[in-house]
């Protein structure tokens, strides 16, 4: 696995695996088993970055799976990069110290590699972000950030004289490239992470002529073209797949390079398409 460096010097994997199962249908026990098998497979194939959140309700399960993997020497804690997020329900309580302790306990670890505010929840997030600074200084988290941030939130941080996040996680894919926001992140030395990195391979993604043409040209799949496009521009894509073949497909992207022209052809697909309408998850967003 390759790494990037955050503004505070911490190394972060160039790709992450999402672990949310909350929108999946099926019996809980079966989903848990599926997740466990997928995580073990991913770890064995050199995927070391994992993304979760309190609202995914799987922190305790991940804690168990990670512990088991450390015990069985499948991986070591220091080689794993764990991201979790603090949700709106917890933000309303305005007690970040309590929330980080809960996450640490659930994930059975002494530190979190990256801790994010899941949403810039109006009226709460600035205060909670301020509290997160103290927790970062305490060493319980190695880096902090905000998910679903926009330009106006960066502006608010500046006005409040609060530090910039190390990482911002947003919905980012060829059909939503938010160029001005990406430029702002680069200017502020903020690492960008992309959720829904392949736009869930919706029919218009799967069938997109440009992506299919590039896939044929490079003898890769559309997914791999998209993943490579992310990594090549220094954005960390978060992919979610519990199928071993798909996990391998997502991470097997380091043996080819897209030309600048092809990168631009993918950028040109932008139509500001948000699969996740943010305001539904964070009213007042």
């Amino acid at each position: 696995m390759e790494y990037l460096q955050l503004s505070n010097g911490i190394s972060i994997p160039t790709q992450m695996m999402g672990t949310s199962i909350c929108d999946m249908k099926g019996k809980k026990a079966e989903l848990f088993a599926l997740l466990e098998r997928a995580l073990i497979y991913a770890a064995q194939t050199d995927t070391v970055g994992f993304d979760t959140a309190r609202d995914y309700a799987n922190e305790p399960l991940l804690g168990k799976i990670f512990s088991k993997m450390y015990r069985n020497k499948i991986m070591r804690r220091e080689n794993v990069f764990i991201t979790t997020k603090v949700g709106n329900g917890q933000q309303y309580l305005r007690n970040m110290k309590h929330e980080i302790d809960l996450s640490l306990k659930a994930l059975k670890t002494d530190y979190i590699d990256l801790w994010l505010l899941h949403w810039p929840l109006p009226d709460y997030w600035l205060d909670n972000w301020s509290q997160m600074q103290d927790i970062y200084k305490s060493g319980k988290v190695r880096a902090i950030g905000i998910a679903n941030c926009r330009e106006r939130h960066i502006e608010m941080l500046k006005q409040a004289h609060l530090p910039m996040p190390h990482v911002i996680q947003i919905e980012y894919h060829p059909f939503r490239t938010v160029p001005s926001f990406v430029a702002l992140c680069r200017k502020e030395k903020i690492q960008l992470e992309a959720y829904s990195a392949n736009c869930l391979m919706l029919p218009f993604v799967k069938g997109n002529p440009t992506l299919n043409e590039l896939a044929a040209k490079y003898h890769k799949t559309v997914t791999q073209i998209i993943m490579c496009w992310h990594v090549q521009q220094g954005v960390i894509p978060i992919f979610r797949s519990f199928n071993p073949a798909h996990i391998s497909e997502n991470v097997d992207i380091h043996k080819f390079t897209l030309t600048d022209e092809d990168m631009q052809r993918i950028f040109a697909l932008d139509r500001d398409y948000k699969f996740h309408p943010e305001s539904l998850n964070c009213p007042g967003y």
């Binding site: 943010e278 305001s279 009213p283 007042g284 967003y285």
Partner: peptide, 13 residues
């Protein structure tokens, strides 16, 4: 206003 706050992300920039 409540409807706007909840559904506005469906709007294009």
């Amino acid at each position: 206003f409540e409807i706007l706050k909840y559904f506005h992300s469906y709007l294009k920039t």
